[in-house]
Nucleic acid binder design. Structure first.
Lengths: 212, 212
DNA sequence: TGTACATCAGTGAACGCGCGTTCACTGATGTAC
DNA sequence: TGTACATCAGTGAACGCGCGTTCACTGATGTAC
């Protein structure tokens, strides 16, 4: 006990000299640090290379620590996916916010959707790997709902379909941007030139028969 | 040695009575049996639950045996994916074979594409997980090329684009059916009624501006 | 037709590895008095 | 303002597991003579 008290004193003294040495036992924001670590791992190795131990290692914490915040690996991945949906919603919102023409809004959202996927492949890939996530998680559900309400709305504005049900036009629009994004991420298109995306997006508004 | 000779004689005798007892050491078609086992595992557990040992176990063979045919797990998965692309090509070919109208052909291929994905989720999912496959494998490359040449052709027939480059119209068509299939498989659409697919496919021909 | 031998497809025990999870524990924090 | 104590966030050693791969081997097949 005496020895331990001494070492505590030494820590307290050195704290005055070098500030970042403090707070080693309680991390402060371990939850956030683990999410960041998980994102890094996913970006580097893909979801195959992810493990809870590795995330703990990168956060500088013992392998048992993450359980306090996320329960298990699924819980951590669910938090990462939730953050992904939130960012997607932000991207979609920003893309359309100053546009009034419904056609222009749909096109801008389509572009933003594909851009989000290519800029955040780790998130985008994970968001659709539902077998790895806790699909009953309330935050995940809400984040997903919010993101797709935007796309749905944009397409509904263009068609005569009732607002409550997902219209075929909205679904077609979602399918085309999702399909394009997936093909890019899965490497099926090789080095597709940027104008190819523009040309595909030109066809987005063609999908809405009532607007022609 | 004498004992072994005896047991061989017993085997030979019993062979006349029950035929299937023979040929236990050399499997006969271990390659095919391992591919079948892998398909079963993928269908049951998804690609996360796949392992080479489990495939060997199901084929009734020691864990080291698959190496003789596939090298490693990647090799076996590549063979499964190749079979998937071959089946997709068959499905696309059959869907269009008696149709002459270019619009009808494109629509039929789109329908066949989505139907293939939902009927063969294990294959379809794997076919796009390129990180798990040996993408330099000649059989895989050829099977993939052959399947997509068909879709490309069907869309090119509808547009004025030159035949050699993938036209934006073809890519848009591929994107929409691929996106729809992925959304279904990833559970994003819940229990989508079949007519929804028909309505989305109605829009396939709208994507080809030069044909309107 | 028979025999020797090379080749190949399989065995099964063993290896080291990283994983998720459990366990009894301890250090820091915040709250009640 | 000080002290006691409950609570919570972390430790780190240990567990059992299934994995891919290696290893020396052996049984079956096919071919040359």
């Amino acid at each position: 006990m005496g020895k331990k008290l001494d070492s505590v004193k030494i820590n307290l003294n050195s704290e005055k000299i070098e500030a970042p040495a403090r707070g080693n036992y309680h991390h402060g924001d371990l939850r956030g640090a683990l999410i960041n670590a998980a994102e890094d791992i996913l970006a580097e190795r893909g979801v195959e290379g992810f493990s809870l131990r590795e995330a703990a290692r990168r956060a500088g914490v013992s392998p048992a620590a993450p359980a306090h915040h996320f329960g298990d690996a699924r819980g951590l991945l669910t938090a990462v996916a939730t953050r992904g949906f939130e960012r997607l919603e932000t991207a979609l919102t920003e893309a359309q916010q100053e546009l009034r023409d419904p056609r222009a809004r749909l096109r801008a959202q389509g572009h933003a959707y594909v851009r989000f996927a290519t800029a955040n492949p780790a998130h985008f890939n994970l968001m659709w790997r539902r077998a790895l996530l806790d699909n009953d998680d309330a935050h995940l559900q809400e984040a997903g709902r919010a993101a797709f309400a935007l796309l749905d709305e944009a397409a509904a504005d263009l068609s005569a379909a009732p607002k409550n049900a997902p219209s075929p036009g909205a679904l077609a629009a979602w399918s085309i941007v999702h399909g394009y994004a997936r093909l890019i991420l899965d490497g099926a298109l090789g080095d597709a030139p940027p104008e190819l995306l523009d040309q595909v997006l030109d066809r987005l508004t063609l999908l809405q028969p009532h607007s022609a």
